[in-house]
Each structure stands twice: as C-alpha cells, then as structure tokens.
Design a protein around this nucleic acid. Sequence first.
RNA 1: UGAAACGGCCGUCUUAUCGCUGUUUGAAUAAAACAGAGGAAAGUCCGGGCAACACAGAGCGCCAUGCUUCCUAACGGGAAGGCUCAUGCAUGCAUGAGACAGAAAGUGCCACAGAAACAAGACCGCCGCAUCCCUGAUGCGGUAAGGGUGAAAAAGUAGGGUAAGAGCCUACUCGUGCUGCAGCGAUGCCGCAUUGGGGUAAACCUCAUGGGUUGAAAGUCCAAAUAGGCUGUUUGGGUCGCAAGACUACGGGCUGCUCGUCCGGCUUCAGCAAUGAAGCAAGCAGUGGGUAGGGCGUUGGAGGCUUUCAGCGAUGAAAGUCCCAGAUAAAUGAUAAGAGCUGCGCAAGCAGAACAGAACCCGGCUUACAGGCCAUUUUUAUUU
RNA 2: GCCGGUGUAGCUCAGGGGUAGAGUACUUCCUUGGUAAGGAAGGGGUCGAGAGUUCAAUUCUCUUCGCUGGCU
Length: 145
Amino acid sequence: MSRLPLEANSHKQSSPYMPRFTFHKSERLCSKVQIEKLFQEGKVIKQYPLQVIYRINHDTPAWPQLLITVPKKRFKRANKRNRVKRLIRESYRLQKHLFFSGQEKLHIGIIYLSSDLPDFDFLQKKLNLALQRCKNELDQTVQGS
RNA sequence: UGAAACGGCCGUCUUAUCGCUGUUUGAAUAAAACAGAGGAAAGUCCGGGCAACACAGAGCGCCAUGCUUCCUAACGGGAAGGCUCAUGCAUGCAUGAGACAGAAAGUGCCACAGAAACAAGACCGCCGCAUCCCUGAUGCGGUAAGGGUGAAAAAGUAGGGUAAGAGCCUACUCGUGCUGCAGCGAUGCCGCAUUGGGGUAAACCUCAUGGGUUGAAAGUCCAAAUAGGCUGUUUGGGUCGCAAGACUACGGGCUGCUCGUCCGGCUUCAGCAAUGAAGCAAGCAGUGGGUAGGGCGUUGGAGGCUUUCAGCGAUGAAAGUCCCAGAUAAAUGAUAAGAGCUGCGCAAGCAGAACAGAACCCGGCUUACAGGCCAUUUUUAUUU
RNA sequence: GCCGGUGUAGCUCAGGGGUAGAGUACUUCCUUGGUAAGGAAGGGGUCGAGAGUUCAAUUCUCUUCGCUGGCU
C-alpha cells in the first residue's frame, strides 16, 4: 500500500516542476495586504465542501502561494480546525505538481465550508476536482488575453 | 470478591516512506544530526515576574478580601486547627459542607396574612373597680398566660407566686459580660453576674488588611519603494556651457510695413534702474518622522528529576544530575505495517480509542475527560 | 492574545427582592353585504443552565453555556 512513494517515483522524471513534494514557508501566503487583495479581487470556484479563490499576482514571488482557511463558525474547537487545515495542506502538497509548473504568479485561497470532519481520500478527490477547474479557467483567461 | 464515595497517578507504543518548524555543523535555500503540545495547553477567575507611563506626604472616593496559626515571591490558593450546621452510628466520634468580622454606630427593607413587623402594640381573651335597662352590656384600669396570622411575635421547660398575670422569684438549659486556668491564637473549661432589646450586611454601611494605571496587540531597535515634511544649494522658456555667455523660440516698444535694433522674463513688495526681500515651482544633496517588512522582548526558569535531612502537614534546606517546543495568517502532519488495550465473537475476524492544540513566562483555582492503575473509608455477598 | 456588554411571550423590549408586564403577532366574539381599520375577551413564559444567600431570587453572589462589541 505504498501508494504515495510510487506516485513520487513515477512523476520524478515526467514532471519538470517539483519532483519532490515539498511545502515551504515561502509557498504560504502570509502578507496581510496580499490576502486582502485576494479576497477583494479574486475569482471564486465552489466545489463543495471546498471553495477556491484565486488571483493572478504581479509582484515578486514567482511561484504559487497558498492560503488555507477553516471558519471558526463551523468548528468551535481549535484542534479540529487545525486537523482540517493540515489535511488540506497535505493533499495540496501531494497534488500541486499535477496542475502547476511552478512559474505561475498566483495566489490561491482554499476555504472549507462543511461542518463535518473530512476523510483524507475524500478531501484529495475534491481538491483534485477544484484545482482542475481552477486550472481550466486560468488557461482560458491566458488564451483570451 | 462486588459496589459507592473521596484522593493520587497514567492518558497507547514501535517502525518505514513523504513532508513541516527550530538548533548545531556547513559557503549554502544543498546535506546531515538532534529536538518538536497538555493534564488540563481550555476558561481568563485570582496572584506574581517583566515592560511602559505616572508618582513629595496625607486624606476622601472606588475595588477586593474577611474564624485562627502557618506555608508561599504572592494569592481570593494550600496545610493544620477552632466553631457552626447536616448525615450516620448512638453521646462523642466519623464523614461532608460553611463569603465563618460587626445588627446596643447609623439609615433602609420585612409583600400577603395578622391586633401588632420594632422601643410598636392589645383583636378575641383573663382579672379588678364603677355604672346601668344586672345570667349581661358599657366605661376606666391591670395583664401578656392562652387563641389565631406569619419565615419571624422578643429566651425555653418545670415549679412557686398572683385579683389575673408576668424573669416577679427559684432550678436547669441557651445567650451575653467579667475573673481565673489551658492554648502562640481562634477557642475551650470552671466560677460569678445578668432579663436577655427580631431578621436582613451575597441591602447601604462600619471596622481591619491590601490595591498607582495599562497589558507582549506592553515596549524597544533597524528600515525599502512611493508620497509628503525640514535644511542647504542651483535654476526660472529651451539647447549647449563649470561660469561668463552664445544660439534659438515667444511677448512688447521704436516704424506705415519689412529688415534691423532695444527691452522683458513665475508671483508680490520696495526701487528710475541695476538689484534686493518674501513666496511659488523644478532639479540636486542632506536630514528626521513614519508605512510595508524585519530583529529584540522570547524561552535557563520562584526549571525538572533523584536522594538525604527538618516539619503532624502544606512546605523548606542541602547534594547530585539534566537542558526539556519556540511558531508568528501561526510548525508539531499524512499514509502504511506491526504490537498492546477495550467491546462483540468458541475461533477466524470485525469495530473502537476520551477531553482537547502551546502563543511572554510562572503559582493556583474552575471547568471538560473514553479507559486503566494505586491507596483510604463505608457497605453487600462468600469462605476461614 | 487582552478587555467589555447581553440572554425575559412567536418577534422587539420594560421590570433590579414580594403572584412577570407593554407593543406587535395569534385565537374567539362584536362591528360590515364582505375585508381592512376599530372595539371586547382570551391563550401563550423552566425569566439561557446549575449551585448558593434569603422566609422568599427574573432581580443578589458564584460557576457554566450561547450571542455580540472594542483593541493590530
């Protein structure tokens, strides 16, 4: 059942971007100003129980940056919120090479909308769908412009 | 052996792969090694450290605490004890609870009911005297035993006493005050005196003690771009030039027109003018504040563990040993395998694993918590 | 992280120790040919929860739960 290492090996040659499944601090979206811009100008994709909000960045960091949010209204206790955030982060870490080459100047926010504790496999599938839709829209806008 | 109460302790573990944060080594963002949530990290209910600001001293006000002694850096916490209440046995013990100073310093309140709810009062009663229409009624006086109301009616019980009664008197009990004894003290015991005037202070209040205010989003240091502030300097249509000036564009005057020539340079004031002063704009240089961002504060501490000693105990002292999270839109995760535990099941196997996530740091309190272990007490049943 | 406020009828709010109220909504009746408006009557409350103080607690005190505001 060592599914993840197999995937890692298979993509090591084919994908030019991030053969290793890292997720550094620099890949997080930490700036308060940038977060405000993201929520004001970003485009929204809803894929229940996830909501993805993204915005093309024009400033310095030349790679995608991620923001994960779980509202306090859905989960009262901090440990449950932390768990959902960690699961989302883990599934993003394992799947981001399928959608991004590492050159996009992009800000992504992921919001968890449900109030049930999710399963890891379930979350991975939903995030896959959501990111796929996001990528399609991005490609269309790039071609259109 | 089962149950209950109370107290203390533990709060699944190991490995592999992929990651995250920090420290060390390293030129390095490569790589390696090591470390990486709790008993409550929670609530923010108290107390401290620390920081900034304020501050002669005293009083008033506000807030908190409130039996005693001790522990402690401090506490509203803890230990030991006293008192009161409740429960149990059955008469002084056990367990539990207690915001447990003051109600003759003053003010307020005590609904309904009741005659009367605080120096108030007599409804029905009881007794004496007087009058009359005399088995009774009325008036005056005495009384607080009995009745009824209420949460509460002014010590209780028994006897004496009296016209009837009453701490009016006596005994015992309760309360209060005083002497003596025991105790550091709260308090207890003995004796004497005393009629002894409700409750409420988690109503205002009085007394005693303590408290300066605000909290790491405190505070402090570095500081980009852009805009703006201050200072100095240069320029005042443009180009060239260090400058003087030259060329050129523009406006005005001289002239009927052209050529030519003279004058003019942002605004205001002074001056015939040259020019000067003030302002405005632009360029350059310097400078200070501040934003984004970053550093410190920030993890070695009233620290942990072990042993010995002192103390009834909380706790303290000494010695040895260890370094044990440090993030910042916030790391401590995911997946897989195995072991242990619990439930169901003969078994194979299947299912499950609480409450909950550091945010400057400590000491407590309170609240949440599956399951397990230990000790004490009570009790059920069985055996000897 | 720190500091406040609040919880009462279906809804919006009074009441701050002595039988819990107002407006609106609801039900029934009157009025009208019918409806609205108007009038009369009525029902509906664990005063967020649990302890304590008190003769008595929605009110006072403590604990707890929910909602909500402010400080970068």
